[in-house]
Design a binder for these strands. Sequence first.
RNA 1: GUCCCCAUCGUCUAGCGGUCCAGGACAUCACUCUUUCAAGGUGAAAACACGGGUUCGAUUCCCGUUGGGGACGCCA
Length: 464
Amino acid sequence: MRFAPSPTGALHLGSARTALFNWLFARSQGGDFLVRVEDTDRARSTPEAVRVIFDSLEWLGLRGDEPAVFQSERRAEHARRAHELLERGGAYKCFATADELDEMRRAAKAEGRPMRYDRRWRDKPPKTDGSPFAVRVRAPLEGEIVIRDHVQGEVRVRCEELDDMVLLRADGSPTYMLSVVVDDHDMDITHVIRGDDHLTNAFRQTLLYRAFGWEAPEFAHIPLIHGADGAKLSKRHGAVSTLAYRDAGILPEALCNYLLRLGWGKGDMEEFSLDEARAHFTLAGVGRGAARFDARKLSHLNGYWIRRLESADLLERIRPRLEEMLGGAVADLSPVARALPELRTRSEDINALAASALFYLRAPRNADNKAAKILGEVDSARWTSLEKFLGGIADADWHAERLEIEVRDFAERAAVSLGSLAQPLRAAMTGTAVSPPIFGVLEVLGRDEVLRRMGAAFGLESAD
RNA sequence: GUCCCCAUCGUCUAGCGGUCCAGGACAUCACUCUUUCAAGGUGAAAACACGGGUUCGAUUCCCGUUGGGGACGCCA
């Protein structure tokens, strides 16, 4: 198996899914998962993009079994193979100029035909005056190419639909079509799983395999991911880069889970860890139609994984984000650790989770609109007596269960609702009107801190 | 335009001739739990694109229509 992205920008979600399927298939079959960077387009390929690909795969947990191959480093080999073919008559020199090709394109368009090279140099003796030439494959003129695709089934196309594609450009550089075939052959690739948009390339490539006298690999063309409007997923649908999801607080577990279930199904199962996916994955489960990307389901799955992760693991994942917000290393994360069970059911991404945990580590500096309003309606005499009351609670009784009993009791004696005490407390402790159950919050914060925040409550600036 | 692919609830899907007045999940709406917000639980609404065949019987097989998508580079 191989995953062969071209480093021309961010790693697209569709590519991430292709990588995932390749990885899963390799793992389920006991094969190797190789990464090959298709950087033959020196103009568009950048080192940063290569970095992004590796970072993305690393983050997703899809590591290659061998060091990545850079296609650009194999250019000489690709050219050698093309010249070999040229000598054997499987390819020929084409001296058509760019202008001539443009003319063909124009004519084709005018007649409503797809652009096909007219093979004008196929049977002509090559020029010997040193003019630049491209090398084209001598493709069969008739018959048909049949592909038994593991996802799409049997697909056939008549040879008339194909033309003599370029193997080596006029400057001697190998084209994608040549490089892919030579590399897949040399790397002993047995299965090619890639996006549906390559289906037509599969015909051209099998043709090339045939010209070389090699056996073509098995193909599986998986449907593309579409945006909500049904068109191929692109920037205008929102974030399309894998790392953008990482930065948005999505867990790799969730993204893999989502990408797997998008266009693939296994009975009624919805949640899959990478391990479970590996155990269940089959190409037969891959659907044939394109699937639309649904950010809300991703979000739901992310919440699911936030709830499922080991506490220690989850804590480490939000640590960097907490430190960023606090502007420095956090020595003691234990308040957050204690609150984690309550916290984790309330966020669908880990950025929000970290933000919601902040008040456990630092007193609120201001109150949002709702909290300010709640605080504004507090009877200060009662507030003071509640403060005194809480201050009198013994250390041994300072835990959520006991505090709830005590405060309920206090409310009853004062003949007020529990909410009229709980909400102001929440506002004072967190600066917001929404948080985990307040008595748990009080417990984790500790009496001293609670009293401190109660005292500072009316000094909080209103900010939203 | 040409070639190719696809077609089950709004979305992702299960279904591989009778088990389907079509199952699950997200989203939606109720109810429940509840000091807030979630999560959880219970329930509701929601689909086999259409037309022909084949068959005792089609969501499932075949053909056509319609609709959607992809590919048509000396890019990858």
